[in-house]
Amino acid sequence: MTPKRIIKIPFEIITFLAMLAALYAIFLYAPVEKTMGLVQKIFYIHVPAAFLAFLGFFITFIASILYLYKRDLKWDAAAFCSAEIGVIFCTIVLITGPIWAKPIWNVWWTWDPRLTTTLILWFIYVAYLMLRGVVSEHQRANFSAVFGIIGFVNVPITFLAIRLWRSIHPVLITSRGINISTPMKHTLALTFLAFCLLFFCLLKSRIKLEKMRTDTEMVSALFEDKIHYQTN
């Protein structure tokens, strides 16, 4: 067993334990909220997932810039994997949000700036993943890096435009008024930690997988070349 392997295993185990602890804290430690009731517990999943979706897209943005600057394909792989995980967390946010909103706001969806921006963000990065699927191999890294940068730069402008757009009409719900008790804060901190660990755990194994995929492709290409060479 190499030293590298010894470090690797605990990280995933820690993530697993942290997720278990987070589940315990959410359902057993944190008190039931007075007015919202049990449905408030979705908040512990929703908020960290939202944070990690943004983090994922931010990593994509930085990795895209680094790729264009350094021309190292490992940054392209990092941007891709991070966008993929970002989309997963963004989907979780968009699913848990309406589940919470229906009993509390009495609607599944409002065109609040934060909600709308998250939805647009989801569309942008799904487009990013689709673009990677259809572009030919030698252009993929460049195109997706440019799109990764454009997509992220667009986010603040979109947010600004949507905020201005909604402020014309009266907004029914302006703030969620997060004023939570200490056990709730502890739970939130723990779920944040667990989700962050999960995020990096996923990112790490996804990048490893991507590297294995490109390596296999390279080997099989070499192998095919060799066969081709031998038959001729």
Binding site: L131, V134, V135, S136, F147, G151, N154, I157, A161
Partner: peptide, 20 residues
């Protein structure tokens, strides 16, 4: 323009970015 699904891809890329 380099992709096979040219027009579909163009709208999928353009619409989310052109929201503002």
């Amino acid at each position: 323009s380099t992709t096979r699904t040219r027009d579909v891809m163009l709208s999928i890329l353009v619409f989310p970015i052109s929201v503002p």
